[in-house]
Amino acid sequence: MCTGRVDLAFILRSFYNRIDGVYIAGCRLDECKYITHGNYHALNTVLLFKKVMEHIGLNPERLRIEFMSSAEGSRFAETVNDFVRKVRTIGPIGKGEGLNGNELTSRLNQMMMLIPYLKIAKREKLSSHLKDREAWDQLFTRDEIETLFRELPSYYIDPDKCQACMTCAKRCPVDAILSGKNLIHIVDQGKCVKCGTCLEVCPPKFGAVTKICGEPVPPPIPEEKRTIVRKKKEKGQTDKE
């Protein structure tokens, strides 16, 4: 396992658990013993998450990544001690930022749901190899993150167009589409990771899925109106309910 295995979700989970600071130690950059150079990936993860922290009102200095070799015990101790001092001055998570507990939980919860989206939207940048330290802070900008969240897409199935063909439901990687034979499909916005697969796979003749940005998603169609009553195509054939 490589430092590159450190997932956005792990960092977020730690803060969710009210850990006050997260320190990630990786191998020295450009000294990967394999060919992976996963520490650069970990660096990108940290750089992105720091901006996310700013966005949700957490002090980004609660998160740090350092690179060192196994022979640099003193460097490890030094940087950890420094980090601990820093986190102490910031104070307990939430409190240090003037956020109350519920507010913090709700913001982190919301972010937890958006991690898959972050991975999709920032896929290229998350694989950068930034050799130049100066460029680190510029990899993700504040504006970029603000825009990202402002233009957060939602996928919506138009009940008038949906023919309940089940294609999107079968293909949805996270089982976020409520479906059934002859039941108009509904995107469970709480489960949706905004990958867009449904939009991609909805048969063009139906064109039922739309991407909505910056606007609220219409409420799901009431349960009783979901059943599609199809016209009898041939004599003797009935809809099976």
Partner: peptide, 27 residues
């Protein structure tokens, strides 16, 4: 190395022995 696991938006690819579930439990 598990880089793929980290990149996967849906958790479809998992590094066995260091799965999301195992590591989150530890965290």
């Amino acid at each position: 190395d598990g880089l793929c696991n980290t990149k996967c938006p849906t958790g479809a690819i998992q590094l066995k022995h260091y799965t999301d579930e195992e590591l989150i439990a530890q965290i």
